[in-house]
Simulated assay, not measured.
Amino acid sequence: MRYVMESRDEARRLLVQERSGNAREALLAAGLQRGDRVLDAGCGPGGITELIAEMVGSSGHVTGMDVSEERLAQARQLNQHHAHVRFQSGDVRRTGLPDAAFDFTWCQFVLQYVPDRWDALAELARVTRPGGKVVISEFDGFGLGNWPFPEPLQQWCQHFTNALLRTVGLDVHVGRKVFHAMRQLGLAQVRVHLLPQFVIAGTADAAMYQDWETRFSALEPAVAPLLGGLEDYRAMCQKYLELLADPDALKYSILLVTEGTRP
């Protein structure tokens, strides 16, 4: 599985995203408890792993898993002060972990990138003990909640998200689909928590602006050919960045945190 967002700046971007998001609120809403054995599936550079480790305390245990050895090295460095944390290489679709090994399995911003994402969900349920929680945190309609939203830019954003799905399998609407998938899988007590991923009333700050610049740059090789070529792609990306900088525009995105219990 190739990670389409890879770039020289991606580790920094991911860590900023992890530390500035609503992970603590989402984890608490889904019922994370002290002493839990937790899998952080697709842990990236380990920012949320660190948060989970603090929340479960030394009586708990956290396993961080990622396909990227580079990310795992960063995560180990960040979490070296936590004796109850370990990291290992693994694919969310085929973890190689024992059945029923965790009380709480957490996976954020991963299924959106995985073509066979529901196989991955089944694997995450398998490694969760009966009575344990599987928690999937994903955005829904990322980057599409804006007003004013000029019609040409709105249409381009729709073409952009369609191109992502066709070329690299990235689904910006995956958040809304997890509830149904958990029900079909047979998970019990499936609940959905709605949180803001971001709300920008006015001009976006420098970190958000840079985040979008990094996204557009990383995705350029895959989607620019489907969107009129490089020149047109960069021109429309600039239009979106101008929208982020508009002091009179609202920009927002929602996060759907879906939890299910393994029977």
Rank of each mutant, 00 (worst) to 15 (best):
V127S: 06
W156Y: 01
M208I: 10
L124G: 07
M5Q: 15
A235T: 07
I254G: 10
R13V: 00
A53P: 01
L195I: 03
G96M: 04
K177S: 13
R176F: 06
Y113A: 12
V257W: 06
L243T: 03
P130N: 13
A11H: 07
D246P: 00
K251D: 07
L227R: 03
D119S: 14
E69K: 05
F198D: 08
S68F: 01
L97A: 03
G35N: 06
A73Q: 14
R126T: 03
R176P: 00
P130Y: 00
L227F: 11
P247G: 11
G42D: 01
A120D: 06
L185N: 01
D66M: 00
F87N: 05
T214I: 10
Q33S: 13
V56A: 13
C107L: 04
G143W: 05
G145V: 10
V172M: 15
L194N: 11
K133N: 12
L194Q: 04
G31Y: 10
R12D: 14
D205R: 02
Q154M: 10
D205Q: 01
S59T: 12
F216M: 11
D211H: 15
V110D: 04
L243S: 12
N146H: 13
D246F: 01
A101H: 02
D205M: 04
R2C: 07
S20D: 05
R129Q: 14
F149C: 00
V110C: 09
A30Q: 08
A224Q: 04
M55P: 00
S58N: 10
P196K: 05
N162M: 09
C107T: 06
E54Y: 03
Q108E: 11
A122T: 04
S20G: 07
D246S: 11
R117Q: 08
L255K: 07
L51Q: 09
P196I: 04
R12P: 02
F109W: 15
A224Y: 01
S137I: 11
L121Y: 01
R129W: 02
R34T: 14
A101V: 09
L250C: 08
E242G: 06
A122G: 12
F216C: 05
Q154S: 14
A188N: 08
Q112E: 08
M55T: 00
D171V: 00
I136M: 03
H84W: 13
N22H: 13
K239S: 14
G175T: 05
E138H: 01
R262E: 06
D116R: 14
G64C: 07
V56P: 04
I254L: 15
A224V: 10
R183Q: 11
T167Q: 14
T214C: 04
E231G: 01
C107M: 04
P130Q: 12
P263K: 10
A29Y: 08
S253G: 15
D171I: 02
N162C: 09
N79G: 09
A224G: 11
V223H: 00
V199C: 10
H180G: 10
G143V: 08
G64W: 03
A26P: 01
A26N: 01
D116A: 15
S7V: 00
G202L: 09
E69F: 06
